[in-house]
C-alpha cells in the first residue's frame, strides 16, 4: 500500500516537472506556430485585402472555391509538381550513386564525405546567386564550358526559355540538397551487414543482382524517408525562385510558393494568399501520408 502511494506521488511530481521543464519551449512553439496557424485558417475564410482596409468580411469557403476553379491555381500546381518530381528524382538518383561510392572503403573517403558539407552549408539564397552566376548569358561558366566542348556555337540564356530553365532550376536546387540525402542513404547502407553480401558472392550473385536483391530492399526504409522529406521540401520551394527566376520567363517557373508570395505580399490579398497556402499545405500533407503508407507497405514482410 505504502509503495503504491509513493509511486503515485512520484508520478504526480514527474508530470509537474514535465510541464515546468517543457513550458518555455511549448509556449514559444505555440505562439509562433499554433496561433498563426489558427489565424491563417481564419484569414483564409475572409476577404482580407490590405489595399482595401475596413472591408474585411467573412466569406466562408469562397476563397477556396475561387482558387479551385482558377487556372492561377492549377497551372502553378502543375509547375510545382514538374519541379518537385524532377528534383526528387535527381536528388535520389545522384545521392544514391554517391552513397554507394562512399560506402566503399578507400583512402580519402573521409575527405570526400567532409566536403559534402560545403554545398549543404550554403544558404539557398547564396546558392541561387551562385547558379545565376554560373548560368549568366555573357559570363557564365556553363556557357563557356558548353562552348569549349562544342555543344553550343554561341552563348545562350539558359534561364530564358522552357524547358532549359526548369532543368537548370532543378539542378541548382538539387545541388545543395544532395549532400544530406547522401549522408542519410550512406548511414542506411552502413546498417546492412557485410556477410549478406559475402554469402551472395559465394552463391554467384553479380554486382547488379546484389544491388537489386540485397541493397535496394534493405535500404528501402531510409530511401522512403529521403523521398518523403525531399518531396515535402521541394513542394514548398520559394527562396531559389525569388532570386533565380522570379517565376519567369512568362510564368514558366511560377510554382505555388511563388504564387502565394505574389498574391499575399505584392497584391496584398492576405485572404486569397492564406487560402492557397492552406491548399499547398493540405496537398503536401496528403502526399506525405500517401507516400508513407505506400512506401512503407513494401518494407514489412520479407
Amino acid at each position: 500500500m505504502k509503495a503504491e502511494t509513493n509511486n503515485e506521488r512520484k508520478e504526480m511530481s514527474q508530470g509537474m516537472l514535465a510541464v515546468l521543464f517543457s513550458a518555455p519551449a511549448v509556449l514559444i512553439i505555440a505562439a509562433t506556430i499554433l496561433v498563426p496557424f489558427g489565424l491563417a485558417v481564419f484569414l483564409s475564410l475572409h476577404k482580407w485585402n490590405l489595399k482595401r482596409p475596413g472591408r474585411e468580411r467573412f466569406i466562408g469557403l469562397e476563397n477556396y472555391v475561387d482558387w479551385l476553379t482558377d487556372s492561377d491555381f492549377w497551372e502553378p500546381l502543375q509547375t510545382t509538381f514538374t519541379f518537385a518530381i524532377g528534383a526528387v528524382l535527381l536528388i535520389v538518383a545522384v545521392s544514391l550513386l554517391v552513397a554507394l561510392l562512399l560506402n566503399e572503403n578507400f583512402p580519402g573517403r573521409g575527405l570526400v564525405r567532409a566536403l559534402l558539407l560545403v554545398p549543404w552549408a550554403i544558404p539557398s539564397v547564396v546558392n541561387a546567386l551562385l547558379w545565376k552566376w554560373l548560368l549568366n548569358p555573357q559570363y557564365g561558366l556553363i556557357n563557356a564550358l558548353w562552348f569549349e566542348l562544342g555543344i553550343i556555337t554561341e552563348y545562350q540564356n539558359m534561364l530564358g526559355s522552357m524547358p532549359s530553365v526548369m532543368i537548370w532550376l532543378v539542378i541548382a536546387y538539387s545541388w545543395i540538397h544532395i549532400p544530406l540525402a547522401t549522408l542519410l542513404l550512406l548511414s542506411g547502407l552502413q546498417t546492412i551487414p557485410g556477410d549478406i553480401y559475402e554469402s551472395a558472392i559465394v552463391d554467384g550473385a553479380g554486382l547488379w543482382q546484389r544491388f537489386r536483391f540485397i541493397t535496394l530492399p534493405m535500404l528501402r526504409p531510409m530511401l522512403s524517408i529521403v523521398i518523403i522529406f525531399e518531396m515535402i521540401f521541394a513542394l514548398k520551394v520559394f527562396d531559389i525562385i525569388f532570386v533565380l527566376t522570379a517565376g519567369g520567363p512568362a510564368n514558366a517557373t511560377n510554382v505555388l510558393g511563388w504564387q502565394i508570395y505574389t498574391e499575399t505580399f505584392r497584391k496584398l490579398d492576405f485572404g486569397a494568399g492564406s487560402s492557397i497556402a492552406m491548399l499547398l499545405g493540405a496537398i503536401t500533407l496528403g502526399l506525405a501520408i500517401l507516400f508513407y503508407v505506400f512506401l512503407d507497405k513494401g518494407t514489412e514482410p520479407q
Binding site: 519551449a25 511549448v26 496557424f37 491563417a40 484569414l43 514548398k236 497556402a277 499545405g281
Partner: peptide, 22 residues
C-alpha cells in the same frame, strides 16, 4: 507532447508567414 512538437514542423512556413507578418 512529442508528437505535437514534431507535427508543428509539418505546417508549411509560407502559410504561417502570412498571419505572422500581419
Amino acid at each position: 507532447l512529442l508528437f505535437g512538437i514534431l507535427a508543428s514542423r509539418l505546417i508549411p512556413a509560407l502559410s504561417l508567414a502570412i498571419p505572422i507578418v500581419l
